[in-house]
Nucleic acid binder design. Structure first.
Length: 262
DNA sequence: ATGACGATTCAAAATCGA
């Protein structure tokens, strides 16, 4: 069972890249973020042609949007709203005895000060609400997968320069401490870091503004697949499909995979 | 320090991303 998460940055614009992802990564489940597509315009027919017969989507016009694509049937599809906002950022479905969550945590704007920047305040509240909800709703023995664009780079090696980014949104202590609290709720296993030592850099996002993204390599690890301890013994592999950042008209995020034994 | 890019939207310039 291979689970991929990808911030696609427009599902309609990048449907051909989703075909390439399907071919090159051969996932069983794909969690998408930033689909930027209302549900009535979601490209179901194109996805069916790619073999994605089971699709759950939760989208709106222009912004946000999440989806789950699956080879096998999805059950109990539902969505979650946060911070009393209409944003489409969280969809949940059961597949093969697991509950899969596709999650898009807010970016948070530029200024990392909740008193000055309402978007950053909203991001912190979003993280706090998630933490309270997971702690109240589930236990570590529930078989859960939490995958998505968390918009937080938790470890010093999850950014290209830890010191330079401490005051940059995605890597501030206000965000990383909150993400750590979320991780503690169910003793979530960060699947990429189950394989890559904490002193090694891993990135999943590179800005569109870099002239030479690969050469400069000023990346951040914003995309994550977490599993509960119930699923952790089945974890057998990981991948960041970095080459996807070089596909024609790419997303600025690379797909991230976790592999679980069947 | 600024801007660099890219997607979307009542279709031109603004907003958002991170």
């Amino acid at each position: 069972m291979k689970i991929v998460t990808w911030n696609v940055n427009s599902i309609r614009l990048r449907i051909d890249l989703l075909e390439r992802l399907t071919d090159e990564m051969a996932p069983d489940v794909v969690c998408l973020q930033e689909t930027k597509c209302p549900d009535d315009l979601f490209p179901h027919e194109a996805l069916t042609r790619l073999g994605w017969e089971h699709v759950a989507c939760h989208g709106q016009k222009g912004y946000n949007g999440v989806a789950i694509l699956s080879r096998r049937p999805l059950r109990e599809v539902r969505t979650q709203a946060w911070c009393e906002r209409p944003d489409c950022r969280h969809i949940i479905a059961e597949v093969d005895g697991m509950e899969v969550h596709s999650l898009y945590i807010p970016a948070g704007g530029d200024e990392p000060d909740p008193a000055k920047n309402p978007k950053f305040a909203n991001k912190l509240r979003f993280l706090d609400e998630l933490t309270e909800w997971f702690a109240a709703t589930y236990g570590p023995r529930d078989p859960l997968v939490l995958a998505g664009d968390f918009n937080v780079a938790p470890l010093p090696t999850d950014v290209w320069d830890h010191k330079k980014l401490l005051k940059v949104v995605t890597h501030t202590p206000m965000e990383t401490t909150r993400l750590a609290l979320l991780q503690q709720t169910l003793d979530w296993v960060d699947t990429t870091r189950a394989f890559v030592p904490a002193d090694e850099h891993v990135f999943t996002w590179w800005s569109y503004r870099a002239a030479d993204w690969r050469g400069a390599n000023k990346g951040r690890r914003l995309d994550h697949v977490w599993v509960t301890p119930a699923l952790a013994p089945r974890l057998t592999g990981w991948e960041v499909h970095v080459d996807a950042r070089d596909w024609p008209q790419p997303s600025d995020h690379a797909p991230v995979a976790a592999v679980l034994a069947d």
